[in-house]
Design a protein around this nucleic acid. Structure first.
Lengths: 164, 164
DNA sequence: TATTGTTATACTCTATAACTATA
DNA sequence: TATAGTTATAGAGTATAACAATA
């Protein structure tokens, strides 16, 4: 069966990003996500909680660019697995402090350790200097924020969903 | 409110890819997706159909690395919008040939034209040579395929969903 | 009034299994 | 038996609005 010619989409950075994300995601799932039963966001949350003190759901929502209700659901799931607890902030009665339980900390560290060598095969397609360059360029792109005037709604935090 | 320290995730290429995808996705939605009422995959399908003759759902599933049932649903939607038709292949009674309708072709070309300048602001954070390098490196990463021995199920086409 | 977090809802995407019709 | 495509279903992600409690 003939392969389709996709050159008509080559000019789109977004297309290249999405395509590069496919094997990257597979590598994550096979090497970490499935064995430790963590989705990419769940992994990210656990690691961030372990490396940052006094984290609130609001901070997570900002850091991950995920809408607040989504964070609530994610934290619910991790809490029901006994990986974290929610405490009221002592300085602001509205806010919470999320804390990893001992089990959560063990899992966070195990996952983080595992993540260090996770992409070895994947990035083997690049030279060491290419890896450095790629990450630097991706960070530049990630730092872009549309001008306010361009935004349809100033405070819309549109999700990270990526259906392609 | 304090920003979280995310340096503990810097080593993961997948994390950088996902983060770079966020503004890229916003740019697509605001500049093309919302005005033309096309999701990223729908846009991709229309453009591929316009640039390739005699396309079957199977070919689309392969090209986009989307599971067959998902392709069925995507094509259903585009068909109900009058953008394409499904014809039986004359050489293989099981297969289909997807064809853009005149309206579909008009939209495909309008969308493609619009996509050419879509990311101008986004890629302005990069120099011209950086853009070339970035796309080349992304293509390398996108070309990676895990060794069969690593794959849990040889024919699993895991989706492109990207919840992070 | 504004902010933090939750609930509820609706829609999309994704994954799988089971089915049909053709080969 | 294998392949192309569909149906059905369940789960996860995402966006919005509306709400409670606190500031």
């Amino acid at each position: 069966m003939a392969e389709l010619d996709q050159s008509c989409l080559d000019h789109l950075l977004g297309y290249q990003l999405t395509r590069a994300n496919i094997p990257s995601r597979q590598v994550f799932l096979r090497g970490l996500g499935i064995p430790l039963e963590l989705s990419p966001v769940e992994f990210t949350i656990l690691v961030l909680l372990d490396h940052n003190a006094e984290v609130s759901p609001k901070q997570l929502a900002r850091a991950l660019e995920v809408a607040a209700p989504a964070v609530t659901l994610l934290l619910d799931r991790l809490m029901h697995r006994g990986l974290l607890t929610r405490l009221r902030s002592e300085t602001d009665g509205r806010a919470q402090r999320i804390r990893l339980t001992p089990e959560g900390q063990v899992l966070a560290r195990r996952a983080h350790r595992r993540s260090l060598n996770l992409e070895a095969d994947l990035v083997a397609v690049l030279s060491e200097s290419e890896r450095v360059i790629l990450k630097r360029l991706l960070r530049k792109v990630a730092g872009y924020r549309p001008k306010e005037a361009d935004r349809s709604r100033p405070d819309s935090q549109t999700g990270r969903g990526n259906s392609r």
